[in-house]
Simulated assay, not measured.
Amino acid sequence: MGGASVFWFGVLVAGLCAGALFMFKGKEDPTLWRTCTILSLACCYLMWALTYLAQLHPIIVPKRDDLRIDI
């Protein structure tokens, strides 16, 4: 797995957002339902993608402390 999974999951979320545009036609207030659904999907995707990419390429590389030479 790598950065490609972020792209493909983004394509899936974009498809779900496009589907949400047509899903709420019969509801009482479709604009509110569409807006809430698309914003929720977008925010969840961004949080997941940023967390996943931060773990793939960390800014600060951890250092091991157990490599000290005892004198």
Rank of each mutant, 00 (worst) to 15 (best):
V61L: 12
I71V: 13
L46V: 15
A49T: 03
M1I: 06
L41S: 04
R64K: 11
G2F: 05
D29C: 09
K25S: 05
L50W: 10
L56Y: 09
G3K: 08
L21V: 15
A49S: 15
I60V: 08
P58L: 13
A49G: 07
C17G: 05
L46E: 04
F22P: 00
L53Y: 06
A42D: 01
A18F: 14
A18Q: 10
D70Q: 14
L41H: 02
A49P: 00
C43I: 08
D70A: 11
D65C: 13
V11S: 04
S40G: 14
L41D: 01
I59K: 13
L16A: 10
G26A: 15
F7I: 15
Y45M: 02
M1R: 06
G2K: 10
A42G: 07
G2P: 00
C17N: 07
V13C: 03
G26L: 11
L41W: 02
E28T: 14
K27H: 13
I38C: 07
T37F: 03
L50T: 10
D70K: 14
G2A: 03
D65E: 14
M23S: 09
I60D: 06
Q55M: 12
T51A: 09
L53C: 14
T35R: 14
G10T: 02
H57D: 07
V6S: 01
A14I: 02
V61F: 13
L12F: 06
D29P: 00
L67P: 01
C43Q: 08
G15L: 05
I69W: 10
C44A: 15
C36H: 06
M23D: 01
G26Q: 14
P62I: 07
W48D: 00
M47C: 10
D29S: 13
T35L: 14
T31Q: 12
K25G: 02
L12C: 03
P30T: 11
C36Y: 11
A54I: 08
V61P: 01
A49L: 10
G26M: 11
G2E: 09
V61M: 11
H57Y: 12
V6I: 15
L46S: 11
R64I: 03
H57C: 06
R68M: 07
S40N: 08
R68P: 01
G15Q: 05
C43L: 14
F24Y: 15
D65T: 12
M23G: 03
F22N: 05
D65F: 11
D65Q: 12
L12Q: 04
L56I: 08
A20Y: 02
L12K: 02
I38K: 04
T37N: 02
C17V: 08
V11I: 09
I60C: 05
L32I: 11
C17F: 05
L21A: 15
L12D: 01
P30D: 04
L56S: 08
T31F: 10
R68S: 08
T35E: 11
F22Q: 11
I71P: 06
Y45G: 01
D66Q: 10
K63H: 07
F9W: 03
D29Q: 12
Q55A: 12
Y52H: 14
A14Q: 05
G2V: 05
D29G: 01
L41K: 02
V11D: 00
A14S: 07
C43G: 04
Q55W: 10
L56K: 15
K27Y: 15
P58V: 05
H57S: 07
V6N: 00
K27G: 08
F24A: 03
